[in-house]
């Protein structure tokens, strides 16, 4: 190929990426095949790589959403999402943080009101999976404290703990789609607790008041204040059951006495 007389057109990375995300844009001038003709389909390789790899990343992140709306619909939704929210970091394991808000505003799926909270739960699971390790306190540590000291203490929860509070039965929807033989979801809302005993996150629907209790602990409230919050939220809050879930999930990282740090 002979050198052109006029300076060759320079292709900025902005021009390149705009044409990648929008297949309606022409292939940038200055991208060629070996004969010096416009690159055409050769450019589409990049368009395709980007769209396919991001769609796959989203499918890996949101398997229950994909199951609920079907593979073809999910691809279409991912195609819209990835163009509106390209990743803002190279850590693909955390891609899709805007999915719940996106689904809330996505007209064609508005009739499936539970989707945003299911997406929140799927994000919580991934965050839990990659969260820092923490050695849980021994199960007897809580009982060892006299009641007045326990009430004033603060439980520091494991980094892998997540709480998703929903007016939809999110935990049951998740299990119904991902666990063989799980029962049909109930009609009521659920507070889903994610813990990670070992390396595999688990999801449990908390008993009534459990969401208020754990939310208060996460906010740094004392044990007593969290108990008040839960008891104020529901009649007959089952503290023993909720503490059992936290202990079984290895979710209490430490018990801190004295003024908050």
């Amino acid at each position: 190929m002979s050198r052109p007389q006029s300076p060759a057109p320079s292709v900025s990375q902005g021009t390149f990426t705009r044409a990648i995300l929008d297949a309606g844009q022409p292939v940038p001038e200055g991208l060629l095949d070996p004969e010096g003709r416009p690159a055409g389909r050769r450019f589409s390789v990049y368009r395709n790589n980007v769209a396919v790899s991001l769609t796959e990343a989203l499918a890996t992140a949101f398997p229950v959403i994909e199951k609920l709306i079907g593979e073809e619909n999910f691809k279409a939704v991912a195609g819209v999402f990835l163009r509106r929210y390209p990743p803002d970091s190279p850590l693909m394991m955390f891609y899709g943080q805007q999915m719940p808000a996106f689904l809330e505003g996505f007209e064609p799926l508005k009739h499936l009101g539970y989707l945003p909270d299911v997406a929140r739960l799927e994000i919580a699971l991934r965050e839990s999976y990659h969260a820092a390790d923490a050695t849980p306190v021994p199960p007897e540590a809580l009982q060892a404290l006299p009641p007045d000291r326990l009430m004033a203490a603060r439980l520091r929860l494991a980094p892998a703990l997540r709480l998703v509070r929903s007016r939809w039965p999110v935990a049951s929807i998740w299990h119904f789609n991902m666990s063989e033989g799980a029962p049909k979801p109930p009609a009521n809302g659920e507070n889903a607790l994610v813990t990670r005993p070992g390396f595999d996150p688990q999801i449990i629907a908390l008993p009534p008041g459990g969401g208020a209790f754990i939310a208060a602990l996460l906010a740094g409230e004392s044990f007593g204040a969290a108990l008040d919050a839960a008891s104020g939220a529901v009649e007959g809050f089952d503290l023993t059951a909720v503490l059992g879930l936290l202990i079984q999930g290895g979710a209490i990282a430490s018990i801190e006495e004295g003024p908050p740090a």
Binding site: I20, Y46, N49, L54, P87, D88
Partner: peptide, 17 residues
């Protein structure tokens, strides 16, 4: 290669002149 532009990561190895 490059993969990030305008704070967006494109998850592909894009070419350079």
């Amino acid at each position: 290669a490059w993969s990030t532009h305008d704070s967006h990561f494109f998850n592909d190895l894009l070419p350079l002149p």
